[in-house]
């Protein structure tokens, strides 16, 4: 049952992302991407990471994508006819390189490797303990980085 859901979600992600990157209208692309991220959040949940799934929805689909929308609207970029979209000249190197990367990855994955070590689902308690005990310093660093980003954004955004 869960396997079938995984493959369906995978198909949704791939198709939605494909639409997102080929969509000329940026706002539409964002919406496709939000769809894709929702599906990815469910996959996270299926993989036993409920907290990450929740954060994916809140931060990615909620905050970051909305930030994109804000900027698009602020800069009035919602007119696809004004922005030249990539033609065949732009797509073929992208396809080629992406294809090479994908083919290499798949080829590498076909090599048999050591079996899974096995492990159960990870509870929220374990996750939180690891996050704040083991990676406490990393959390502090990330929070400082967010602060810097905030200051930087303020500096760049001020009117002269």
């Amino acid at each position: 049952m869960e396997q079938i859901i995984f493959y369906i979600l995978a198909a949704i992600i791939v198709i939605a992302t494909l639409f997102a990157i080929t969509e000329r209208h940026t706002v539409h692309a964002i919406v496709y991407l939000v769809t894709s991220f929702f599906a990815l959040a469910v996959i996270f949940y299926l993989l036993g990471a409920p907290l990450v799934a929740v954060f994916e929805v809140i931060i990615y689909a909620g905050a970051i994508m909305v930030l994109f929308l804000f900027v698009i609207m602020m800069l009035d970029l919602g007119h696809p006819e004004k922005v030249s979209s990539p033609g065949w000249r732009d797509w073929w190197p992208a396809t080629l390189l992406g294809g090479v990367l994908l083919a290499a990855t798949v080829l590498l994955l076909t090599v048999p490797h050591a079996g899974p070590a096995g492990g159960g689902a990870i509870g929220v308690r374990d996750f939180a303990r690891a996050l704040f005990r083991q990676y406490g310093i990393a959390v502090e660093v990330i929070s400082m980085q967010l602060l810097f980003a905030l200051v930087g954004a303020l500096y760049l955004g001020r009117r002269r």
Partner: peptide, 19 residues
């Protein structure tokens, strides 16, 4: 593009070596 080409080259080489 150069960066991606370099990465693709590296990965392709890696695949070539492993297989």
């Amino acid at each position: 593009l150069s960066l991606a080409a370099g990465a693709a080259l590296l990965l392709a080489y890696l695949a070539w070596v492993v297989l």
